[in-house]
């Protein structure tokens, strides 16, 4: 179950909205931060804390692509391949991640270092192609630049 500090945090979030159910998405984010991903167990903690049916919690969580339903690697790479990024070569970068690092979309590398997710537009189209590594933004990507960046994430 969540520890006292987390329970307090969720309680405080509940107070920000006229109806406590609005705390569901923020609470799922908190659970994801605490456990790294949303296991059934984590979602049932959220359900208990907010006093909501588990089915409702799971049904809501599954709608949103930023909630992870399996264990992710140490670093999450979110690479955009939507139109603006695609026409500037984003797909080549996916191939590069595949051949150089053994990454597959929606999968984690064998050593647990990286998980790769293909993203829809992340609002960096003016400096495409772009990606997020965890919560850090990187743009104007090339193969060389990606190599340099990923060296920082062990």
């Amino acid at each position: 179950m969540f520890n006292e500090t987390v329970l307090k945090e969720i309680d405080e979030i509940k107070g920000r909205y006229p109806d406590f159910r609005s705390a569901l998405l923020p609470a799922l984010y908190v659970a994801q931060r605490e456990f790294g991903w949303l296991s059934h167990e984590a979602m049932s903690y959220v359900a208990r804390t907010l006093n909501l049916p588990e089915a409702m919690v799971r049904g809501t969580a599954s709608f949103y692509s930023m909630f992870k339903h399996k264990e992710a690697g140490r670093h999450l790479i979110q690479l955009c391949t939507n139109v603006s990024c695609m026409i500037l070569g984003a797909e080549r970068l996916v191939d590069f991640l595949r051949t150089k690092y053994g990454m597959e979309p929606d999968n984690t590398t064998q050593d647990g270092r990286f998980s790769l997710v293909i993203m829809e537009c992340i609002g960096a189209c003016g400096t495409a192609p772009a990606m997020l590594v965890n919560t850090d933004f990187y743009d104007n990507l090339t193969e060389g630049k990606i190599e340099e960046i990923l060296d920082k994430y062990k």
Partner: peptide, 10 residues
């Protein structure tokens, strides 16, 4: 004013 974070759904 409160910021509410979406979760990746266009």
């Amino acid at each position: 004013l409160t910021v509410y974070q979406g979760a990746g759904a266009y």
